[in-house]
Write a protein that binds this DNA or RNA. Structure first.
Lengths: 174, 174
DNA sequence: GGACTATACCTAGATCACTAGGTATCTCGT
DNA sequence: ACGAGATACCTAGTGATCTAGGTATAGTCC
């Protein structure tokens, strides 16, 4: 997920690690704060894979900066990951949000629509959090307000997103 | 997260690994499918920590079952994790849902309310996904439907949950 | 001048969960 | 009789992320 976010942000502009980290932290950090101990090894991986290059610059304020520039290979990799995200990027809300944040880079309505349709398919699948043997349990089966809340929240949020997906798919098709 | 789910389900009833896995899969598996290769080592960890014991039983259908029974220490650990969840369990929706699924076990409205208040505090914090320097960007700052959707969905879902939290907190207090 | 903060980058080790294999038992259909 | 499928448990190796440390520079406050 962090790799996708790094590639996505660097597609727009060259950044140094410290600034990239702040951008990633704003996007995903409210859920999982990103430590620099996570980011720097990740950048080395991406560099080793040929997805980005470094340009050393004197620091504007303090220590020298490593400006990060996405290579052609890096852009290709970003497109690849956006076009065909792993299933986890469709089902996990945090990862899905990362895909949404950069899906505009794909620049092909048909491909964008394909990704949205995968999410829509996932959200419209029948499912339940709890079962009594083979019987799916519903909000009404529970006394405690917390499990009822679970259903309330899950239902409301998926309804909102399904509506948005249908709307946006219609726009992309039109 | 999976440890919390295991402790939570075993608080209600003794289960064997295979059945426990199905229950956990229903609760969190739509987001991240749980493999048995994940669960069995986890159960060994919990057993080694003294949180659960095994009782071997002949299988009803096939191979012998290891019935898993929560110990007093395991119940104490569950309460501890529900009373004072790590920050990640408050901020990450998947983990938060796991907390909600078992919060009724806490059996003390004041402690339950404290946990809900932490989530409410998190959700009502001002935040943004994207920044232009120091200026937080809003839905209107974007042309692409995807980032707009990001805001639409995030706003709608957190509104629903905030309303539910306030309601439930009022009930717990009254 | 010294403490503190922000900037900027780095590494070693641990943890959690996953992938990809494996073993064995029982039932049912053909 | 045999294969398929469900039940039931297990391990080794891998990957992503976190924790907890570290280094160094520049500006601000007292």
């Amino acid at each position: 997920m962090l790799e996708l976010a790094a590639l996505g942000f660097l597609y727009d502009e060259r950044l140094h690690g410290y600034e990239l980290r702040k951008k990633i932290a704003a996007l995903t950090g409210h859920v999982r704060p990103i430590a620099d101990g996570t980011l720097y090894p990740l950048l080395k991986r991406l560099e080793a894979a040929g997805y980005l290059e470094r340009e050393l610059e004197p620091g504007q304020v303090a220590a020298p900066r490593h400006m990060l520039v996405l290579t052609a290979k890096g852009r290709a990799e970003l497109f690849q990951r956006l076009r065909r995200p792993d299933e986890l990027f469709i089902t996990d809300e945090n990862r899905w949000f990362t895909v949404l944040a950069f899906l505009r880079h794909l620049d092909d309505p048909a491909q964008q629509a394909m990704v949205l349709r995968r999410r829509l398919t996932f959200l419209t699948q029948p499912a339940s959090f709890f079962w009594d043997g083979d019987r799916p349990l519903r909000a009404g089966d529970f006394d405690d307000p917390f499990r009822r809340g679970l259903f309330t929240i899950a239902t409301a949020t998926s309804r909102t997103e399904i509506a948005w997906l249908r709307e946006t798919l219609a726009e992309l098709a039109g």
